[in-house]
């Protein structure tokens, strides 16, 4: 593959993460290449969120190495901020800023973290609102929008930082069923633009459509990494088979 010749966009080597004495990540290794779309799945509590939160250091890992966007994630808060500017994150609960309008949610990052003048930031924001298909909602407050619209605003907010990598942590899990597709559609288009993406989701239809690589986690370990065809039709581990049977017949 063309992408594999470049150095990885994210490289995780032997990472362990503890919460107190509980080990949430056990010697996890994963490489994500530029333009690659990785879908992470696994049972609840298996460490999926912890893994992607370590990539932008919302959680600090205890041992192992993580490199993202070409920088090792170790140093102080300043280098951390510079890396976070290159990694967008979309949360299960949207986490929009409720006291700010959609427009201000979108321009805050560009203006404060990228020192962009307001006018330029607003042009950028309108551009991304267009891409997530809600250009008409710029003046509204998050609570005035549906869940699906809020999540699309959250995606646009991340995109306004023009990141190299996008992380999604169960972006559709908090949504009513009829709103899931509008969010997946936006994510699919993003995937088609060859954004580097790591997506934690149980939406297996989406995974089949866009994933270059499937990752299955259980009990803090990566149990299986495979291209989607192999993953869905010939999973090698019993745990993965059981999980897929559960989730696909459900």
């Amino acid at each position: 593959m063309r992408a594999q010749q470049l150095p990885p966009a994210i490289s995780i080597r032997g990472v362990c993460k503890f919460f107190g004495s509980f080990q949430a990540l056990k010697d996890v290794s994963l490489e994500v290449y530029p333009g690659e779309r990785v879908v992470v799945c696994g049972p609840s509590g298996s460490g999926k969120s912890t893994l992607i939160r370590c990539i932008n250091q919302l959680e600090k890992h205890e041992s192992g190495d993580i490199r993202a966007a070409g920088v090792a994630l170790t140093g102080g808060s300043d280098s951390l901020r510079r890396i976070r500017a290159k990694i967008g994150m979309v949360f299960q609960q949207f986490n929009l800023f409720p006291h700010l309008t959609v427009m201000d949610n979108l321009t805050l990052g560009p203006m404060r973290a990228r020192n962009m003048p307001r006018e330029q930031a607003e042009t950028l924001a309108r551009n991304y609102l267009e891409r997530v298909k809600i250009p008409e909602q710029a003046g509204k407050y998050p609570r005035q929008l549906s869940g699906g619209q809020q999540q699309r605003v959250a995606i646009a907010r991340s995109l306004c930082m023009e990141p190299e990598i996008m992380l999604f942590d169960e972006p559709t899990s908090a949504l009513d069923p009829e709103m899931i597709n509008e969010v997946l559609e936006v994510m699919t288009e993003l995937a088609e633009s060859r954004m580097t993406m790591v997506v934690v989701t149980h939406e297996m239809g989406f995974a089949r459509r866009v994933a270059d690589k499937m990752v299955f986690m259980d009990h803090g370990e990566i149990v299986e990494t495979a291209p989607p065809e192999t993953f869905f039709h010939h999973p090698s581990s019993q745990r993965c088979k059981d999980f897929l049977r559960q989730i696909l017949t459900h």
């Binding site: 919302l58 901020r81 500017a85 990694i87 929009l96 800023f97 805050l108 907010r157």
Partner: peptide, 16 residues
């Protein structure tokens, strides 16, 4: 806590 995390994810510093 999600508000802090969202702010961090768009690279805001502590003051902002």
């Amino acid at each position: 806590r999600g508000q802090y995390e969202a702010a961090q994810s768009i690279s805001l510093n502590y003051r902002d």
